[in-house]
Design a protein around this nucleic acid. Structure first.
Lengths: 192, 192
DNA sequence: GCAAAACGAGGACATTTGACGTCATTTTTT
DNA sequence: AAAAAATGACGTCAAATGTCCTCGTTTTGC
């Protein structure tokens, strides 16, 4: 489980083996089965998580019970509720597994410690946050400017792997359109 | 012009007068009139900008000429195209002034230098990026889960000052709905 | 391996939203 | 001060989208 992480982090940073040993010393490994919750609304998100295998989603619910997906996190990606994690405030979202998944967890104090001792990790984390911001801004732009079909096509283009592993309900919930709309778009594309 | 910035930064950080002097030594002051462009699509966004007076917007255009507003930046806020600024890549958006505005500009190398010499400024900047991410994620959630009326009400609640200074076209363009839809919502709220 | 749940298409219908044009008023520009 | 542009409401019509439903198929969980 940690092996995947080690491979990943080595391709994204120039950390030495001692650094990685230190990171490992603080890591918690966790396996979750499909549908298992990693974070529940109202809780404080105690962990920043690396998904080494599987697929995880972050979603919020509304009063009417509808679910809205903020993020998919497949293998080799990070997930957490940044606001809750950084500020130790109750989260407004949920994280659960869409497939049996393997994760590595660190608390905020783990990361504070690691950042203080591994400058390269700190730099990597900053890059990650920055790139995250670029991506979310792009998503806002897509949200406010694109048609449903454009959003659907973009999603397939940007996340082909996720697309092939989740139901259309999930895609609809991520895009902010109804399943019916996706059905119609797919039908129209079939005819062409 | 720099006076407003000094007041602002002193309330948000614990920088000393020498730090501020250093920051000032790299700053460029700029006044723009209404409608003047600060960044044009295709250019590299050379500056991170502090708006000390006025109101500025970041927007993208589509092939059909439609404009979509990513961000309003009133006095005492920061603006830039983060991706273009960080990576020195051509920007996909435009920044222009909605009112006569006064700004302070720093280049990336200015900031690199200042960050290296003023740890408190670096820490402040990181907080800013993090908070930005929280906000943009909230906006995505709103985009994909709220009705047009909810988005409209949220906007007024979150940005009352901006709301009172921009046209409904601008609000519509920020929310990703048509002006007509806003008109209808306002009409319906009047009747209640 | 089997019962239960999830999945995705599709029909019917209501609602929301957008495109386009008009118009009176206000604001901006010169 | 006058001309030009922007503003925001509104009407009409068409298109897009959502809700609720059924139905056959696939997947999941025990």
């Amino acid at each position: 489980m940690f092996a995947e992480f080690e491979t990943f982090i080595k391709t994204h940073t120039a950390l030495c083996d001692d650094d990685i040993k230190l990171i490992r010393s603080r890591a918690i490994e966790k396996v979750v089965r499909r549908k298992e919750l990693l974070l529940q609304e109202g809780e404080i998100c105690r962990y920043k998580m690396f998904v080494s295998k599987g697929l995880v989603r972050t979603f919020c619910t509304r009063d009417d019970g509808s679910e809205h997906i903020l993020q998919f996190s497949p293998q080799n990606s990070w997930t957490t509720d940044p606001e809750s994690f950084d500020n130790l405030t109750p989260s407004h979202c949920n994280i659960d597994a869409l497939e049996r998944s393997e994760l590595i967890l660190w608390t905020k104090s783990d990361f504070d410690y690691l950042f203080a001792n591994i400058p390269g990790l700190k730099a990597y984390s900053e890059k990650l946050v920055a790139r995250n911001l670029y991506l979310v801004r792009k998503r806002v732009l897509s949200n406010i400017s694109a048609t449903a079909e454009e959003k659907y096509d973009e999603f397939i283009k940007n996340y082909p792997d996720v697309f092939s592993r989740v139901s259309l309900h999930m895609v609809a919930s991520y895009l902010g359109v109804s399943l019916k709309t996706l059905s119609r778009i797919r039908q129209a594309q079939l005819i062409r």
